[in-house]
């Protein structure tokens, strides 16, 4: 939204709520393989935190990512996903075969590390896409 409609109540609620949303998003991302959740849900939670700031505090929000930055971030997230996949091919594995990483650890640990890298890419991409869609829907246009 371009102009804010927050009152002091909404503003204070926002300040207390958003840190918990961000911490929960990080928890969902890090524990994706043990509990429900994963990259998509964590990215949507981060995106909701930023969209909430845009709704309540307007353009001059504390936690703001502009639409153009969001599109660049979405590209970076997709690149992380593809880069990790191609990196395993460079180490004589298949696409996204995490066991091919030449790291001195157990096979399961290598899998967990590779899946975490993929999920970070998915998280950044989903967060940035949600912010970009919201920005496109609320952008003020001149006519």
């Amino acid at each position: 939204m371009n102009r804010k409609f927050g009152t002091i109540i909404l503003d204070t609620a926002f300040r207390y709520l958003v840190p918990f949303i961000l911490v929960f998003g990080m928890y969902v991302l890090m524990h994706g393989e043990y509990s429900p959740g994963g990259g998509f849900q964590a990215g949507a939670l981060f995106g909701i935190a930023v969209v909430l700031g845009r709704l309540i505090q307007g353009e001059e929000a504390m936690l703001n990512i502009s639409g153009n930055t969001a599109i660049i971030l979405a590209g970076i997230g997709t690149f992380i996903y593809g880069f990790i996949g191609v990196l395993t091919m460079l180490f004589n594995g298949n696409f996204l075969e995490y066991g091919a990483f030449p790291l001195n650890m157990a096979e399961a640990d290598r899998h967990a590390l590779g899946i975490l890298g993929i999920e970070i890419g998915v998280t950044i991409c989903v967060m940035a896409t949600i912010i970009a869609i919201f920005d496109a829907l609320t952008r003020r246009e001149e006519w």
Partner: peptide, 14 residues
């Protein structure tokens, strides 16, 4: 269920 809850909130906002 988690995915559906998150997508429900996001789509309502949109």
């Amino acid at each position: 269920a988690f995915t559906e809850a998150v997508v429900g909130v996001v789509s309502t906002t949109f």
